[in-house]
Design a binder for these strands. Structure first.
Lengths: 220, 220
DNA sequence: ACCTGAACACCGTTCAAGT
DNA sequence: ACCTGAACACCGTTCAAGT
C-alpha cells in the first residue's frame, strides 16, 4: 500500500505497517468497548505485539489518539466533498447533502468521531497536522456556503460564521445521538423520519411563520 | 443547610455533608485539570479525607460523575426557566433568550457541562434521576416552542423535533467552543459579536434568500 | 455509622537488554 | 532499527479493622 518505492524501508519484524495496524486496533477497541477502555496493552495484544512496541511509532497514548482523530478529519472531509460533488451533479440541495454526509460520517464512524471531539484530545492546537485537517474539513462547509451566496440561493453574511452555526447543528445531532434515540426528550420515540433532513430545512428556512404562508403548514 | 430537621442525622466525623463536599471537589478538579485528571484519591485529598471514604456515599467513580451531571442538568434547567420568564416579562425573543442562557450555562460551567455530555457518563439511561433531570431541562425548550406556535410566532411542526434541532445547535456551539475561539475555521478571529445570537437568528429566519428581501442584506 | 490503611489487579511509561 | 521483559509510580476498588 505504501508508495514510497519498491523497497520496504520500514519493514518491521512482525508487520509491514505497524503504525497503521495500531491505529486500526485502537479504533476497533474504542468501537467495541468505549474510549476509556482503550489500553496500550490491549492495543499491543490485539496486534500481537508487546505493550511497549507502540512507543517506536507514537510518543504517547495521546499521540495514538491524535492519529485516530487525524484519520477521522481526513475521512469526513472526503465524505463532505464527495457529497457536495454528487449534489451538484444531481441538482439536489447542497446543504441537505452536506448535512446527510456529516451526520452519516459521525454515525458510521463513532470511534473516530468521539476521538475527534472527545476530551482525550487535548493537543488539538498543538498538533499542526490535526489542526490543518480539521480546518480543511471545515473549509468544505465554508466553500459550499460561499458558492450558495454567489449563486443567489443563500443570503449574504460572513461564510465562516454561517458555517460555524451549520457545523454546530450537525455536531450537536451526532453528539446528542440524534437521528436515532434522543435520550431526554421524545415522549413518542416511534420512528418518524430522521432528524437530519429536518434540521437542514430548519437551517435553510427558519422556524418563524412566514407572512405569505401563515401558521398551519407542516414541513416534512 | 440541610432542612431535614434540627438534628444532624448524617453528621460525619469531619463534615456536615461529605457527599456535597465530594461533588464540589470533583467539579473543582475537573475545572482545574480536566476530566481525566480526576482521581478519587485526589478528591479525597482535596476534601481532607481518605481515598476510600467516598465509597460510603457513592458506589463508584461513575456514580460521583453522575452526581456532577445531575447537578448540571438541574442548574441548566433553572437557568433556562429563568431566562424564559425574564424574556416574557421584557417582551424580548424567547428563542434568543434560551440560546443565550444555554450557551451561557455551558461556557460558565464547563466542568458540569463536559461531565453531562462526556463519554465518562455511560449510565445516562440507567440512572433514572439523571434521565429525569435531562428530560426536565429539555422540556423547557419544548414548552417554549409550543408556546411560540400557539402565539403564532413559530411555524407548526412537532415541538419535540424542533427542540431537538435547537438543542443540537446550542450543544454544538458549546461543545465546539463557539462564542470564543472556533478551533478549525476562522481565518479572521478578530472578535466580532458572539456566535449565539447569530445562531438564534439563523434558526428563526433561516439561511435562504427571501423573495421580498433579495440577496444583499447582512444580518447582524 | 462512618472512616482508615493495607492489599489487589490494573494502568502508562521508562529503560537496559536482546536480535 | 525494531522489539522485549522487568520495573516504577500511579490508579479504582475491596476489605478487615478501628472509633
Amino acid at each position: 500500500m505504501a508508495d514510497e518505492g519498491g523497497d520496504k524501508p520500514k519493514a518491521a519484524y512482525h508487520h509491514g505497517d505497524l503504525s497503521r495496524a495500531l491505529v486500526e486496533a485502537a479504533v476497533g477497541i474504542i468501537a467495541a468497548e468505549g474510549v476509556d477502555a482503550l489500553t496500550l496493552r490491549g492495543v499491543g495484544q490485539r496486534v500481537g505485539v508487546s505493550r511497549t512496541a507502540l512507543y517506536r511509532h507514537f510518543d504517547d497514548k495521546a499521540a495514538l489518539l491524535e492519529a485516530v482523530a487525524l484519520e477521522g478529519f481526513r475521512l469526513v472531509r472526503r465524505d463532505l466533498e464527495a457529497a457536495l460533488e454528487a449534489a451538484g451533479g444531481r441538482g439536489s440541495d447542497p446543504m441537505a447533502a452536506l448535512a446527510e454526509a456529516y451526520v452519516g460520517f459521525g454515525m458510521g464512524h463513532p470511534s473516530h468521531y468521539r476521538t475527534m471531539f472527545g476530551p482525550s484530545l487535548k493537543n488539538r492546537e498543538r498538533n499542526p497536522a490535526l489542526k490543518a485537517a480539521g480546518r480543511a474539513a471545515f473549509h468544505v462547509l465554508t466553500r459550499a456556503i460561499t458558492e450558495g451566496q454567489v449563486a443567489g440561493r443563500l443570503a449574504s453574511g460572513d461564510p465562516d460564521r454561517i458555517a460555524q452555526v451549520v457545523w454546530s447543528t450537525l455536531h450537536g445531532i451526532v453528539a446528542l445521538g440524534g437521528d436515532g434515540q434522543f435520550g431526554g426528550g421524545s415522549p413518542a420515540p416511534e420512528a418518524g423520519p430522521a432528524l437530519t433532513p429536518f434540521a437542514a430545512s430548519v437551517l435553510l428556512s427558519g422556524l418563524v411563520v412566514r407572512p405569505e404562508e401563515g401558521p398551519g403548514q407542516s414541513r416534512s
